[in-house]
């Protein structure tokens, strides 16, 4: 069973999974692997690691700056894969998902990227600007090495697309909670709840929710309806504000601990 499946089946009916996002190489390449371990100790159930890109069009200012800080250090896609490989030496169980944009992946080659990701211990990949319609080659490469392909759903996704995107996805579905970019501040929990119900009507895959979850309170609210909450910008901001790499790790871990403490546990599934 894949690491993602194991985590979701272990938590099913008990608690929503917590998935923090960090950008690989932000604030420095040497910090990422220790930061990943610290986030797991703070209560992360899986980790999402961003592959830096010069033009991150779906990201708000916080994560854009994270990408820029990493690129300024010379961090490449290959370097991020190495960070995951380093993490995997000491952690065999926590799923790692890479999130990025398609041009660096196409540049490496879909097959090469898929193989190296799998060898590094990556479990799933989200390519933000690669919708399923353009993803045939990528999906074949990923499934060939057992990588999950996680596609996005959005508030603007129509009913028939929900079905086709679900069919192209494995691991989980990533529901983008708002119209906008990462880190935006206009989350509507009621709207998300209604949309997730319509997603669950067509798929048995777990549904993660991200974009706009900024604090323990909003994480707790969405944890009642989602199988995973994904928190990125709020963590990346804490990393940016830290005076040193050590402080960045401490602040990010403390924040993830507060998120985890806020997630409600369920006695048993009422349904």
């Amino acid at each position: 069973m894949s690491r993602l499946k194991t985590v979701f089946s272990k938590l099913k009916g008990r608690r929503c999974a917590l998935i923090p996002f960090i950008t690989g190489g932000d604030p420095a390449a040497s910090v990422t692997t220790p930061l990943m371990h610290a986030l797991v100790q703070a209560g992360a159930d899986a980790l999402e690691v961003g592959m830096p890109f010069s033009d991150p069009m779906a990201d708000g200012p916080a994560i854009q700056m994270g990408h820029q800080r990493a690129l300024a250090q010379g961090v490449t896609t290959q370097a991020v894969l190495q960070m995951v490989a380093d993490f995997r030496r000491d952690d065999k169980t926590t799923p790692v998902i890479l999130m990025g944009y398609v041009n660096p992946v196409e540049t490496m080659g879909y097959d090469v990227f898929a193989r190296r990701s799998s060898e590094a211990g990556v479990d799933g990949v989200i390519l933000v600007d690669l919708p399923p319609e353009e993803a045939q080659v990528w999906r074949a490469a990923a499934s060939g090495v057992g990588l999950d392909t996680i596609f996005l759903l959005a508030p603007t996704t129509t009913g028939d697309r929900i079905a086709s995107i679900s069919a192209a996805s494995s691991g989980f579905l990533y529901y983008v909670a708002l119209k906008g970019v990462t880190g935006a501040g206009h989350l509507d929990v009621g709207e998300v709840e209604a949309k997730i119900a319509s997603v669950r009507a067509v798929t048995g895959l777990p549904v993660g929710v991200g974009f706009g979850i900024r604090d323990p309170e909003s994480a707790a609210k969405l944890a009642r309806v989602a199988d995973a909450v994904i928190v990125g910008s709020a963590i990346v901001e804490r990393i940016a504000q830290a005076a040193s790499p050590d402080e960045a790790v401490r602040n990010a871990a403390a924040f993830v601990r507060s998120l985890r403490a806020a997630l409600p546990t369920r006695e048993a599934s009422p349904a």
């Binding site: 319609e133 996704t157 906008g180």
Partner: peptide, 21 residues
């Protein structure tokens, strides 16, 4: 689907796929 041979297409985040349709 907006392809000129291997070029063109729709490479955007999901939020924009519905509006583009």
């Amino acid at each position: 689907h907006g392809h000129f041979g291997v070029y063109g297409g729709q490479f955007v985040a999901e939020t924009l796929m519905g509006p583009l349709a």
